[in-house]
Simulated scan of single mutants.
Amino acid sequence: MKILVIQQKMIGDVLVSSLICENLKLNYPNAEIHYLVNRFTIPVIENNPYINKVVVFEDEYRSSKFAFYKFLKNIRRAKYNIVIDAYGKLESNLISLFSGAKTKVSWKKKYTKFIYSHTIDISKTPQTRSGLAIDNRLKLLSPLNLKSVLRSKPKIYLSESEIERAKSKLEKFNLDLSRPLYMISVLGSDILKTYPSEFMVQILDHIVDYSNAQLIFNYIPYQKQEVLKIYNLCQDKTKENIYLGISGDSIREFISITSHCDALIGNEGGAVNMAKAIDIPTFTIFSPWIDKETWSSFEDGKKNVSIHLDEIIPSYFEVKRYKDLKPKSLELYKKLEPKFVIHKLNSFIDHIND
Rank of each mutant, 00 (worst) to 15 (best):
D279P: 01
R77Y: 09
P288R: 13
A78Y: 10
Y116W: 11
F68G: 02
P43E: 00
I51C: 08
N304S: 03
I352G: 01
A78G: 03
K239C: 02
K193Q: 09
F57C: 01
N346V: 07
M1W: 03
L141H: 09
E58Q: 15
I122E: 07
Q7T: 11
Q127D: 03
I342R: 12
C234Q: 07
V105Q: 10
F173H: 15
N267T: 02
N346C: 03
S178W: 03
V186M: 06
E293N: 12
S297G: 15
V208A: 04
T125L: 03
K73M: 11
A86G: 02
E318D: 05
I82L: 09
K153W: 06
K328R: 14
E293Q: 13
N136G: 02
D310G: 01
S306N: 12
I184A: 07
G131Y: 11
I290E: 00
N353Q: 15
Y28M: 06
I220F: 10
Y219P: 01
I163Y: 05
R321S: 12
E58C: 10
T119M: 03
E58G: 05
Q225K: 15
P327T: 14
D262R: 15
T238D: 03
D279E: 14
K25Q: 02
A86Y: 05
E253H: 10
L330I: 10
D135T: 10
E162W: 07
W289M: 08
N212M: 04
K110H: 09
K172F: 03
S117R: 08
L97F: 15
N304C: 03
E162F: 12
A67N: 09
K139S: 08
N267S: 02
Y157E: 01
Q8C: 06
R137K: 15
L36W: 03
D324K: 13
I20Q: 01
K79C: 02
K344P: 00
L26S: 08
I246Y: 02
G88I: 05
I220T: 14
N273V: 05
I251G: 01
W289K: 11
V54P: 00
L228F: 09
L15A: 04
E331M: 12
V319P: 00
K292S: 13
V56R: 11
K53E: 14
E253N: 10
K73F: 05
S347F: 11
H260G: 04
F66E: 02
K239G: 01
G100W: 03
A271W: 04
V56Q: 05
Y116N: 01
L97I: 09
K303S: 11
F114I: 07
P288C: 13
L24P: 00
R77M: 12
I290H: 02
I246F: 07
F98A: 14
K79N: 14
V227K: 13
N145Q: 12
K70R: 14
I51H: 11
Y80Q: 02
A166V: 10
P180R: 12
D310Y: 05
A166Q: 10
D59Y: 10
L141M: 04
I251N: 01
G266I: 08
L336C: 05
G266R: 12
K9A: 11
M1C: 06
I3L: 07
M1I: 08
D279K: 13
Q8M: 13
D324P: 00
A277R: 08
L19C: 06
G301P: 01
L146I: 07
G12A: 13
